[in-house]
Nucleic acid binder design. Sequence first.
DNA 1: TTGTACGCGTTATCAC
DNA 2: GTGATAACGCGTACAA
Lengths: 348, 348
Amino acid sequence: MGMTIRDIAREAGVSTATVSRALRGLPNVDPVTRAKVHAVAERLDYVVSPAASRLASGRAGSIAVITPFVARWYFATVLSGVERVLQRSDLDLLLFSVGDPSETHRVPPHRKLRRRVDAFLVISLEAASPDLREVFELDMPVTLIGSTHDGVSSVAIDDVEGGRAATQHLINQGHRRIAIISGRPLPSPFTPERDRYRGYLDALHAAGIDVEPGFVTHGYFTIEGGEDAMTSLLSLADPPTAVFAISDEMAFGAMRALRRHGLQAGRDVSIVGFDGHDMADLLDLTTVVQPVEELGAQAAQALLDAVLDAGREPQQVQLPTQLVVRGSSGDPHGPRGGGRRDQIETRP
Amino acid sequence: MGMTIRDIAREAGVSTATVSRALRGLPNVDPVTRAKVHAVAERLDYVVSPAASRLASGRAGSIAVITPFVARWYFATVLSGVERVLQRSDLDLLLFSVGDPSETHRVPPHRKLRRRVDAFLVISLEAASPDLREVFELDMPVTLIGSTHDGVSSVAIDDVEGGRAATQHLINQGHRRIAIISGRPLPSPFTPERDRYRGYLDALHAAGIDVEPGFVTHGYFTIEGGEDAMTSLLSLADPPTAVFAISDEMAFGAMRALRRHGLQAGRDVSIVGFDGHDMADLLDLTTVVQPVEELGAQAAQALLDAVLDAGREPQQVQLPTQLVVRGSSGDPHGPRGGGRRDQIETRP
DNA sequence: TTGTACGCGTTATCAC
DNA sequence: GTGATAACGCGTACAA
């Protein structure tokens, strides 16, 4: 209680400077001295005051995680990976949601976080957004998760390849009328949706299939949005026989739309999702699995490195994805749930 | 950049003390002076150094959220509510996962968070756990979410009533052979699972139904656990006709077990879950919905009040739950998803 | 390897 | 209502 570094110094018979050095593991300390200091600190249950330490050192001692959502599966899972890594560091994890961009009265991240953090971890935000521009201008280490931007570190997947693999799988199943449920109306500056869409186009072109404009729909990454998109596809004069939803949640919505029309995914219309959501297995959804928690973990590690190693070059890491085939894309009479997994690994 | 309160003071022609008072909205400041200070601070884009402020004031300026999981639906949703409220305060949200208790090498929360936070928000942890005991001993404001403990503030639901409502619904449907999938083998010190189980017992007793020991199973709150529990129930000589799973995720697992046996929830076996998980609607699961995000929001607000108002009495808030009836508990041919909702509101 | 002493930027306590 | 100024507890040259 109310203990300071001086109490430890006195008790250990050394100076405060030595205590500081010993406790932080700096090199120039006699092992014996270090042990004694540690023993005293332990015995008195001493912990340094982060405020004083930060003030004196000039470091904030924490990193901010900026995310548009905290409760959605993808974001929560990324956050989980980040937390796991940061837990073992001595940096605090400050959670900062930028929430609904339409919300007024909100303080922009750069204003609220200035002088407060040492680095930023940004989950799935468009690097072009005004808020992020100002974060970049703080010129502190930044690592993007799930999206990329020139000159900025990032940990992401190969979205083009993922979109291509999903679409190619449907083509392999014999489909030629393949729709897509993307995020927002294109063109979007948001790399994942743009890239998955490009993968879709690439696969169709390679197979000599013309893209039908009415087959390009948008579900805004929500279950309801996916449901609406599927509903509108079903109302077409000549509906698609297969649908690639660029997120699992939209695929879930699409499956619900099918059920509402008395149809069944895999039998009447094939569905492929994207993410590897926990519930995909349960709903028997074929999907492009990405290592979501690992994205968060590696990004956190990269950021830790950048904080220690100021001036290191930005790294753009890409993690592999994997197509996991389930009942929603044909073969509805085969083994169910967790059954066959014709895994197609995409390149790292 | 590198700007201090002195720069603002000089530029505004006042003392640093006045700048400090003006910027923090303290009462004894002339409105004109305050306006001038604010204008200067705004113009120079000045933000106070939290480290210096915290050192001088003795306040940590942040609250810790302690949670066993960050990616699971319930926890992520609670966290979302917490974040929403804290965003508008000037306290930082420090995320701290206590993760797998079996994990070694982990620093206990009270050690890592001492002198670092002003208060604790604890999501669904047993107040009896050793880690929490030590947090209590720090004697700072603590608010429990989803569980209760004597003498500690909490925001939770009436779990007994929720369990009773779920079971009563199955009884009303004509079932008499009703099993339960609880969390861990009883007796558990964890209030929610203990109370939901008690509600189950209460409903059965009130209906004059004897509890069959073999019908009390455990799914450890996971999908797989729920699946295993259901599988073992199905292997009974005389299986139940209805099952109450005390979490939606275990109910999902139970539904999968049914499918694997060629059975269907709502037609062959009735299932009722607990939580109001996003996917419950999609999977047509009858469930006891609890206001999860609101739990987090109200707990955060209560904690903010406690931080400002030291010495206020602990409050135990209870939020209402609602039974939402869907296809998994009979009437499988009625309207699907979002269809009829025989809502039974339980007492706040 | 260790000690001394200054400074980090703000808040709070006094006077005025 | 406002201004000096002494803490707040630690990191870090610099000296020894």
